[in-house]
Each structure stands twice: as C-alpha cells, then as structure tokens.
C-alpha cells in the first residue's frame, strides 16, 4: 500500500545540516496496522509527514496505492490527500470556530458532495466514534478524549484507505488512550483501513501488527 525506498530527509540552515531520516525503506501492506516508535527527535513524525505527503523527502521514492508521488502538482497532491489519506494529530488540530459537525465535514468540502450528504456522512462518522450527541458543540466544550474522537471522525469521514496517526493517544490519560486505540483497532479490523501510528507507548504499539523502531533517523527494527 505504501512503499518507501531509501528515503532521506535533510534539514538545512545557513550553518547546520541535520539528517532527520537516513535511507528508510518500508513496505506497508494494505490493511496493515503499523506503529513507529523511537526517542524524541529520531524522525518518527518526519517519516509520517512524508508518508502523508505533508512534507517532501530530500531523496528517495514514495509510492502509495500504486501511484508514484513525485512531480505531482499542488492541486494533484491536494486531491490525492483528500481521497486517499486521513490524518490524526496528537494535538487534534480541530477548528475551534466551527461546530463538531462542521469540523468533521471538512474533508468533504473539497469533494463534490452535496451539503445534505456531507451532513449525513459526518453524522455517521461521529456515530462510529460514539459522539453523535455532540454534533453542535464547539471543540472547546469537549474533553481531550472527545476532541480526539472528533479528529478520528474527521479522518474517516471520507473513507480513506490510509490513516496516519501522529501520537493519537499522547495527550490522553491511559483510559482515554485505550478507548482511542480501540477505535483505531476496530477501524483496521472492520474496515481494513491501513493505519500507520507514531507512538511512544509500548503497550499501544504491541497491539498493532508490526513495530518499526527508529534511532537518529535510521531504522533499527
């Protein structure tokens, strides 16, 4: 589903060159649930951002669902992300000025979907994460766990084949973290959604199919 070949990412300033990723090659199968672990600053999030087409590698090849992701225009990349990818962030990144329902509808705004259909799909996604009673709440009125569920609903509303989750349980207590993990596991087993999750939590990582460890930008497991 996701093929990375010899990915390198170098951050350059006027004086310093930092190698964030060093020759990473990965082959993630359709329906696989993969977790990425490693100490802070080892390149986990950079790797996830590159897989999510939010950042470009300095060198190396990426293909997702059989499509080579090089030389895509801004418009094509936007379309690809919209159709194929869903994101869950550690700090949720919900739009506080919009209701929960409007937040979840967001990916559908960039597709040709009627307002009525958007509303139906967003409500359905919120039902899946157990938040159908919070449609008209604002994010600031929700707990951390509820916010992350809204973020998951937003990630799955467009039925993407791949979900990329950057420490989705990092800001939550263990009970809330487990609830979120259960939702992700369910998505993976029921809908066969491919999930790549960055985490610091060994317990959570052990629940996934495969674990990749990074150290100083290099894959060590």
């Amino acid at each position: 589903m996701i093929k990375l070949h010899n990915i390198e990412k170098v951050y350059r300033t006027d004086t310093i060159e930092t190698l964030a990723l060093n020759g990473i090659s990965l082959d993630i199968q359709k329906g696989e649930f993969l977790s990425v672990m490693g100490p802070s600053g080892c390149g986990k999030s950079t790797l996830l951002n590159i897989m999510g087409l939010l950042d470009e590698p300095s060198s190396g090849d990426i293909s997702i669902a059989g499509e080579k992701i090089d030389r895509m225009s801004d418009q094509q990349l936007a379309h690809f992300r919209n159709k194929r990818l869903g994101f869950i962030f550690q700090s949720y990144h919900l739009i506080n000025d919009l209701h929960v329902l409007d937040n979840v509808e967001l990916p559908l705004l960039y597709r040709k979907v009627s307002a009525k259909e958007r509303r139906r799909l967003a409500t359905q996604a919120l039902e899946k994460v157990g938040l159908s009673n919070r449609l008209k709440h604002f994010p600031t009125q929700l707990s951390g766990g509820q916010k992350q569920r809204v973020a998951i609903a937003r990630a799955i509303v467009g039925e993407p084949e791949i979900i990329l989750a950057d420490e989705p349980t990092g800001n939550l207590d263990s009970a809330m973290g487990n609830e979120i993990m259960d939702i992700l596991l369910q998505l993976n087993s029921r809908d066969k959604t491919t999930i790549v999750m960055v985490t610091h939590d060994e317990v959570m990582a052990k629940k996934t199919h495969r674990l990749v460890r990074l150290f100083d930008g290099t894959q060590v497991q």
Binding site: D74, A78, F87, L109
Partner: peptide
C-alpha cells in the same frame, strides 16, 4: 493550524 489542517485534508493553495 487551520490552514495546515485544511491543506492536509485536501484544500489546494488556490482553494
């Protein structure tokens, strides 16, 4: 943050 989220979920620069 909003701009980044919109881009991540499919908004192009023109949009």
């Amino acid at each position: 943050s909003e701009i980044a989220v919109r881009k991540a979920f499919g908004a192009s620069s023109n949009t």
